[in-house]
Write a protein that binds this DNA or RNA. Structure first.
Lengths: 196, 196
DNA sequence: CGACTTTTGGCCCTGAGTGTCATTAAGGTG
DNA sequence: CACCTTAATGACACTCAGGGCCAAAAGTCG
């Protein structure tokens, strides 16, 4: 993973996404997201402000890291899904697998999502990421049912899957003894019971 | 509704939310949201830029109009719900009633939502509004079930209700012959069938 | 009219984001 | 080694959103 073969030609990059992310998170922890200027992050990395905006489109994008890459992963998980399972079950399992970070990565993941879900500006920005994530599901559902990705059902399944995941995340972040995957599962069970 | 009794004392306001909204929508139609500066809106209204920010917290808030007021309406609708209905049914009906604009208001509503859902910055900003809307549902569900509004189920029902509504809105805006309320209903039916 | 109250709008500042462009740091070639 | 090509850097300048501050404006009331 993450084999960005540098073009071997031209001036080499002065930093990496990972370096920026690290420095940024450190500053966010210290002063909070809003009170950390892009200037300060750039300085901490030892790079120009203008350069930082070539690595991340916006300040809001920094906490998300390389999210777009993880969408490919999500697509792969969905494609890997057993065809004999009911569609709703396979989507549900894919969502679980997507959110299954190891015990090591879980800490950083929690930190990341905690920051995002507790910062209004980031929460707002996150819909743009969520839309991409939902689209992956909608495409999968549409393909399985021979529908258009813009049809009501694929879109709905995308939205509802996200709804369940976000419900679980909110609870998870509020209770540090909780297990994320169990919560996603409980949210699904709760919904089904609720709808009888 | 909308009886803002002006204090009868002090300098009267130079404009109203409605006036600003109108002028803003006209400009958004002409040049698009991003290419319309707050300065231009203020000028169109005949008011200082600084003043405009006293009527709306941000440029992003303008298309939403007086959304916060409508939340009280939503709360009232939910409170008005017959107690003998299953909870999921009463929440669903409340969502329908909330989105039941008359044929006259429907046009302006469509314009508003069309702008919001097609403009990334507004789509992002909308989560903050949606969160308030979801909270209204979560509180209702929690009250009916003697749970905490932060518990998993109330939060989930809020998220899923929004998911269904947004799915319907997206389809509605893409197909101008569609009926919004029918779509919300179809989304719900589709979800239930999907979950078998 | 004068006192009081509330809003206006001008001024000025911070900070995000973007276009432009000369400079820099590589690798490759004769 | 000198030179060319390539690609990234970072400085500068600009626009625009948002917000603090405050004198001036525009009402009401006694």
């Amino acid at each position: 993973m993450d084999q960005r073969t540098r073009p071997a030609l031209g001036r080499p990059g002065a930093t990496t996404h990972e370096q920026i992310e690290e420095a940024a998170f450190r500053l966010f922890d210290e002063r909070g997201f809003a009170d950390t200027t892009v200037e300060a992050i750039a300085e901490a990395v030892g790079v120009g402000r203008r350069t930082l905006f070539r690595y991340f489109e916006s300040k809001n994008d920094i906490p998300w890291g390389r999210f777009t890459d993880s969408l490919d992963h999500f697509r792969a998980i969905l494609a890997d899904t057993p065809i004999d399972l009911p569609l709703h079950e396979s989507v549900h399992r894919a969502v679980l697998r997507f959110n299954d970070f190891g015990p090591e990565a879980a800490a950083q993941h929690r930190r990341r999502m905690g920051l995002i879900l507790s910062t209004p500006a980031l929460q707002a920005h996150s819909v743009l990421r969520y839309a991409q994530w939902r689209a992956v599901i909608a495409e999968h559902v549409a393909a399985r049912l021979s529908l258009d990705p813009g049809d009501l059902l694929p879109v709905t399944v995308g939205h509802v899957s996200l709804a369940l995941a976000l419900s679980a995340y909110e609870f998870w972040l509020a209770h540090d003894d909780a297990d994320l995957l169990e919560l996603i599962d409980s949210a699904m069970t709760g919904l089904r019971d609720h709808l009888r």
